[in-house]
Amino acid sequence: MTDSSTMLSTVQAIAAALKDKPGALLPILHGVQDALGYIPSDSVPVIAKALNLSRAEVHGVISFYHYFRETPPGKQTIHLCRAESCQSMGSKQLEGHVKAKLGIDYHETTADGAFSLEPVYCLGNCACSPALQIGADIYGRVSPELFDELIANTEAAA
């Protein structure tokens, strides 16, 4: 089987399992992104058919929500908090350091495919600002030095 047909059969299985839930589109999109890391454009017609929606409607929903992505992410996605509480504790400086260290801006992936960088507007860790998330792990009171350490550990573990 080709990669593309594997992908489509994954999407079909997720859509078939969830399509009868009331308001099934978001659960299906989450399922696809959890399984594949992103929502490939080829999956849109499959999801649309399962829910009897137009492709435009499905695309509209995907593009509305910041969390859903239409391109493959790096091995790890870093979510850096940009909200007020983190700003009060120097997240602007941290942001500058992170971008320089990785050599990418928000919504980009490093050339080696190791990291993607996304902004996030609050991780609910506001008493331990500044905060960020690497993969599923959340970190508080992140200094530039701690960030370098976290990145080194992540790369060593990869």
Binding site: Y65, V120, Y121
Partner: peptide, 21 residues
């Protein structure tokens, strides 16, 4: 049910639209 990173969905009517897919 999980949201998907849209602050506006904390507004109750927007939240219901989101729940409806």
């Amino acid at each position: 049910r999980l949201g998907a990173g849209a602050y506006i969905c904390g507004e109750e009517t927007s939240l219901m639209e989101s729940l409806e897919g």
